[in-house]
Computed example of a mutant assay.
Amino acid sequence: MAARQEVKLFGTPNSPYSRRVEIALNLKGVDYEFVAENLSNKSPELLEYNPVHKMIPVLLHNGKPVVESAVIIEYIDETWSSGSSILPADPLGKANARFWAKFIDDKAMPVIRSIRRFQGEEQVRVIGEAVELLKLLESELKGKKFFGGETIGLVDITANFIALWIGVYEEIMGIRVITKEKLPVLCQWIDDYLNSSIVKKSLPSRDQLYEYLDLQIKKRR
């Protein structure tokens, strides 16, 4: 009989980074306990398990912590053989997936997140910059259902912010970033991704996210 494995995820319900890890765990069929953190009053456990960044998400596997969403996802893929693989088997495929995941985190998301800080012509300029970055990402997607091919992989999971969070920001702020005219392939990917049973199970509801993000934007005004 296999030994019982303790898996806990320290995160917040509306964090795209926490939700990435949940998608990976659910893709692999791993049972886990979600420990909701209050980032204004972080628990002693979070500070103990991630003393460097003191941030979520943290995966606790049999008492051993793993931190940073990208690192955690690869750890999950390598630790559990059940379910579909999150990264390609070949080294070139792995390198390519890591490149685009890093592109999303280091290039696309900072620009997209900055849109809410601008108004008028400056906002239009930043939206245009975000669209150009998303066009580069879309070029990687052409001819495929998901970035991982026929199944959801690392890049898809990393792009969950693009699939759900951007649309909610658009609604709150009355702007348009992703349109079928400018990004038709990415729009189709969003529909396919959000309609995946695993993703539906792993992401917050749109109403829940709207309420949370609307409040965060109002606090900053």
Rank of each mutant, 00 (worst) to 15 (best):
I72N: 11
N41P: 01
D105R: 02
V131K: 11
K107A: 04
G11A: 03
V7L: 13
L47W: 08
E171I: 01
P88W: 00
V71C: 10
I172V: 15
K142Q: 12
I112R: 09
V131F: 11
P51S: 04
L92G: 03
A3C: 11
S15N: 11
E171T: 13
N195E: 14
V7P: 08
S202D: 05
V21C: 14
E122M: 03
V58K: 03
L9W: 01
V66D: 05
K102C: 05
S114A: 05
L154V: 14
R4L: 05
I166N: 09
I127P: 00
I104E: 13
E171N: 09
F10V: 08
E211Q: 13
E211W: 04
R20P: 04
G128V: 00
N38I: 14
D31N: 10
I72Q: 14
P110D: 09
D192G: 05
D207C: 09
R113N: 13
Y32C: 04
N195A: 06
S15E: 08
G167T: 07
L194H: 01
S139G: 12
I152R: 00
L183Y: 00
L203E: 06
K182F: 00
L136G: 15
V67R: 00
I166G: 05
S40E: 13
L60C: 10
V71I: 15
V58C: 06
Y75D: 14
E122F: 00
N62R: 07
H53W: 03
V67H: 03
K28G: 08
R125P: 03
K200W: 04
L186T: 15
K107S: 15
W100D: 04
K218G: 02
Q188L: 11
E122Q: 10
C187P: 02
F161Q: 08
K42Q: 09
D156L: 05
F118I: 07
R98Y: 12
I72R: 12
F118E: 12
E211P: 04
D106R: 02
I112G: 05
T179F: 08
S81A: 12
I152T: 10
L60Q: 09
S69E: 04
S18E: 01
R116H: 13
L154C: 14
L25W: 08
L137C: 05
D106S: 03
E171Q: 15
Y17L: 04
K94N: 06
T79Q: 11
D214H: 09
A3S: 09
G148I: 01
I152C: 02
